[in-house]
Design a protein around this nucleic acid. Structure first.
Ligand SMILES: [Mn+2]
Ligand SMILES: [Mn+2]
Ligand SMILES: [Zn+2]
Ligand SMILES: [Zn+2]
Lengths: 149, 149
DNA sequence: GATAAATTGCAATTGACTTGCAAAAAAATA
DNA sequence: TATTTTTTTGCAAGTCAATTGCAATTTATC
């Protein structure tokens, strides 16, 4: 039920293993980003990661390239929470269609909470539990159409 | 059930009335954009609108300002279908939490289909009806948190 | 350790979207 | 209708997330 997404605090060794398992070179930046994502209580944006790593310690373009690679390899999930940039979070290995979660973001203060699982009928209860009101939801689908499959 | 969103073909007069009803000046550009949105079978991006109106007939900045105003006034809905830009569609007057629809976009060819209504349990059937497979969905929420309300 | 392959920093670039300003058009007033 | 006030428009410049080419550095492979 608990995903690797947030607040997991993986170790440096675990991070490096994750990289190797996915055929990604074990570099300092890539390890740092994995650690940051696992420590964070909410999905992070590229520039938040950049700030945390320290602008002196790496270039923002390297962060973008890393995030892109992580996404290609399926290590992370790319989220649009109604801001004008993406946020990224770790995916759990068994994180699939039927096991994943979503988020709530306050349209006022921007605070982000994680929902426990994806079962839309249950969302209303979670919102009141979290103290969120005036909910709006964003839901769209992508897939492969008949012409393309 | 059918919304004003697509394929409605409102008349120029209807478009201008819609503008007046919402306290927006009845200009040529604004009328054109309304007509285009009502004629389109799928939500349009700013640059698609720009191409259709003709780069000689107006400036892209005017289109952006118009789309922003429409959105403020609640005439349109702004959609993120997993592309790196927004799409816009007309909202129906009684289009609320409990009466709206979503879309499917092909990750291969980009084709976009409109779903009939928002009832997630029913989506699977619609996807097979539409011939879409390998579905992915994007769902996130915004709301007002306890601190802010 | 030597060599091949991937990653990095830096600087330049793209593309969506915004903004200031003066001219033009629309709305409000008379 | 004529005049005044308000809003919109075009144009040009700017912002900011995200991408890219290239040479230097680091990591993987042998
Ligand atoms: Mn999460
Ligand atoms: Mn639609
Ligand atoms: Zn879900
Ligand atoms: Zn819905």
């Amino acid at each position: 039920m608990k995903t690797k997404c947030c607040d997991t605090h993986i170790s440096e060794e675990e991070a490096q293993n994750l990289l190797s398992e996915n055929g990604i070179s074990r570099t300092k930046i890539k390890t740092s980003i994995l650690l940051l994502l696992s420590k964070s209580k909410k999905p992070l944006s590229a520039s938040e990661i950049y700030q945390k790593i320290g602008p002196k310690n790496c270039d923002i373009s390297s962060i973008w390239r890393t995030l892109k690679k992580f996404h290609e390899k399926g290590i992370t999930r790319e989220l649009n929470l109604g801001e004008d940039f993406f946020r990224y979070e770790l995916k759990d290995s068994h994180d699939e269609q039927d096991h994943h979660h979503h988020h709530v973001r306050c349209r006022d203060c921007g605070d982000i909470k994680q929902l426990e699982e994806c079962d839309l009928s249950a969302f209303d209860k979670m919102f009141s539990k979290l103290g969120f009101k005036k909910m709006e939801h964003y839901l769209e689908f992508t897939g492969i159409c008949s012409k393309c499959s």
